[in-house]
Amino acid sequence: MGKRKKQAKVLRIFRKIHRTTGALLFIFFFFISISGLILGWKKNSNGYILPKTEQGTTADLKKWLPVDSLHTIACNTLHHKVSPDMSLEIDRIDIRKEKGSVKFIFVDSFYEVQLDGATGRVLSIGKRRSDFMENIHDGSIVDDYLGTNGYIKLVYTNVMGISLLIFTITGFWLWYGPKRMRKANKT
């Protein structure tokens, strides 16, 4: 088989891989791209996607209330200002020393309560839509729903990462291969 025929065969194989991968994973690429775009805007959404980090009174941790006291304030705030039926299970505590504030992020419905670290005053109560988008983006929403302890997310991120690599390689070759064939034809 001649050099040109080998190159044409490789191009056909790459085209088929590219097309098949795209067709099989279209819906996943769609969700990843949309959620990625939304996440890119989270800090520029005027607090809609991710609540703005508010300024507390001091960055001096020695003047802050104990974390357990701040936790109690955050839980009481969530129950009194949002809903008494919400779970008080904490996803994480985000201390922003430089801002003098602390965020208590709850598992239930992606709510956060921001407090002044020194006074315990409630700075804001907000819904973290970005956390929901991150769960869609990385596939952990399915893990949470099925209770599979992160295994679906692991498989999902591997499949999508490898697929993106395959798309990159085959896409490059689909662009470069014909140029290479035309150049070889001229000589």
Rank of each mutant, 00 (worst) to 15 (best):
L25I: 03
M181L: 15
L24F: 11
Y145P: 00
M86Q: 10
S130P: 07
G2R: 14
Q55M: 04
D144T: 14
S87V: 02
W173V: 09
F132G: 00
V155T: 13
F104E: 03
T20C: 10
S83V: 00
I169N: 08
R12Y: 14
K62S: 15
S163C: 10
G120M: 02
C75M: 13
K5I: 10
L65A: 02
F28Q: 01
N44R: 14
R182D: 11
A184R: 15
L164M: 15
P51K: 09
N76Y: 04
R19S: 14
T57F: 01
G2S: 12
V159N: 06
P84W: 08
K97E: 11
A184C: 08
T21D: 14
D91C: 06
F104K: 02
N135K: 15
T170H: 03
P66I: 04
H71S: 13
L61T: 15
F14P: 08
D94S: 07
T21C: 11
T53I: 14
G139T: 09
F106P: 00
K42V: 07
N135C: 09
I152A: 09
S33Y: 06
P66H: 05
F26D: 03
T20M: 12
T20S: 13
E54F: 05
R96W: 13
D131A: 06
F14N: 14
A59M: 04
H18F: 01
L115A: 01
H18C: 03
W175V: 10
P84C: 03
D143G: 11
N149M: 13
P178L: 09
L24G: 05
G100Q: 00
I17L: 12
H79E: 05
V102A: 09
D138P: 09
